[in-house]
Design a protein around this nucleic acid. Sequence first.
DNA 1: GGACGGTGAAACTTCAGGTTGCCTC
DNA 2: GAAGTTTCACCGTCC
Length: 518
Amino acid sequence: MKSLKLDDEFDSGVLNIALDTLKIGKQALVFVNTKKSAEKTAEEVSKKIKTESEELKILANDALNALSRPTKQCERLSFCIKKGIAFHHAGLIEKQRHLIEENFRSGAIKIICCTPTLAYGIDMPAYRAIIKDLRRYTTHGLSWIPVLDYMQMSGRAGRPNYDKEGQSIAIAISSGEKEKIEEKYLNGAPEEIYSKLAVEPVLRTYVLSLIAASFTTTKKQLFDFFDKTFYAYQFKDLRRMHATITKVLELLEDWEFIMSNGDDFSGANELGDEKLKPTLIGKRVAELYIDPLTAHFIITCLRNGSDKKLDDFSFLQMVSHTLEIRPLLKVGVREYDKIQESMLEVSGFLLENEPSMYEPEYEDFLNSIKTALMLSQWIGEQDEEFLLEEFNIRPGEIKAKLDIADWLLYATEEICKIMHYQSLIKEIVKLRLRMKYGVKEELLPLVRLENIGRVRARMLFRNRFRDIKDLRNADLSTLTHLLGEKTALSVKKQLGQEKLEVPENKRKGQISLKDWEE
DNA sequence: GGACGGTGAAACTTCAGGTTGCCTC
DNA sequence: GAAGTTTCACCGTCC
């Protein structure tokens, strides 16, 4: 351990070290424990920097206009990038993350304040890893992060590709904390690694897939397989492990994902030679790679729904109440009544049986309602800034939720096929398309065209171009005015009408995309 | 006297991230 | 547990 000599110009250690890093012409990653804190730290450093370059202005502009309408997050990021500083966390969209990483590599961006997103497997020219927070919030309050996490963050400094040496700097706020950090992180040993197979959803998924792929066809083979895993090596008590697996088998049979030729699994425990076979639906569930519990939940919901009036919200809430989509949006204290009110409005459409207010599951259930409301607003054409204000969810997180919801709806579609719920499939396909583009149903014919997303489609619709037929009948000059020359030509080309001339004058009285954006 | 605005203390709220899969509609 | 945000009491100013 070395001590660092630098000017203590400000009362914030991070700020001083960050500015010193710039002074010596190097780059740094600053690790903090929340998204908000990453943004704030980046902003504070940015405010101390006077210089701006043309290159950075262009980058800042790219970051600002990464979405159809800039969110507050985009504005904040853009302000920082102008000064050569950035923040990085899961709330940013892919395009912005990529822009930051690439330009940190090129040297244009000097400092990134980040959550642990950048701690794993990233090779970047950071001379310093400044670790501001070594404690993180958990269910039992604030606790020290694992030594392994500390090592991952430190490991980002001084990569062999870029530097001969690097510095990892941990920030302590008191001398007591300094001692603790030295003992635990600098001189201590990293934690043991534990097998993840012991986690129930993982065990369920693997037991089913082993049977579905006919890799293990008897209970004995299944036990033999697990006996050789790292999980068994660590767990040691094989009898107890076999009991756990037997329990999983019983569940899978109850849910009709597997069949056995014995009466039940517990009876033939000692022999273990009864045949295990997947059912048709069990095989598909394994292929879809969703947790069998989720699959069972979906099947139960679909059965419930057969005598109900269904709505988009029915499906959105169903996928919002699965393990896969976690963490759910949390219902805050102030919005509790509002969400509960919304829940009452949609309760007639819900596929699952709603828990009573007094059950412990109620909180989670209400969170699933909030999550589904967010998805519902998205397909109602609300944009990222609206969702950020209304649901406190950032653009990158919206994208992640949409991806998982899409995967689960696809799985639902496949389950419907096997269960012969043909009428539902059409609705789900439509819903998935609406989620992909973030549009109301009426825009679906338009967004199928390349280069036409939610904004342009809505604008065309407002100008009475509501389907392919309308667009085919439209003259190129009108479309050019609305969409710009390139897009208009591309649309006409897709409609098989490419041999058209570009008009000279705009048609009067049309609202162009530009007017629309203003 | 009341509306308004600024200030600071107190009360309250919130808090990382990532992998899996399938299909291109 | 701590940082950030909201609320609220309090005070001074202006009309």
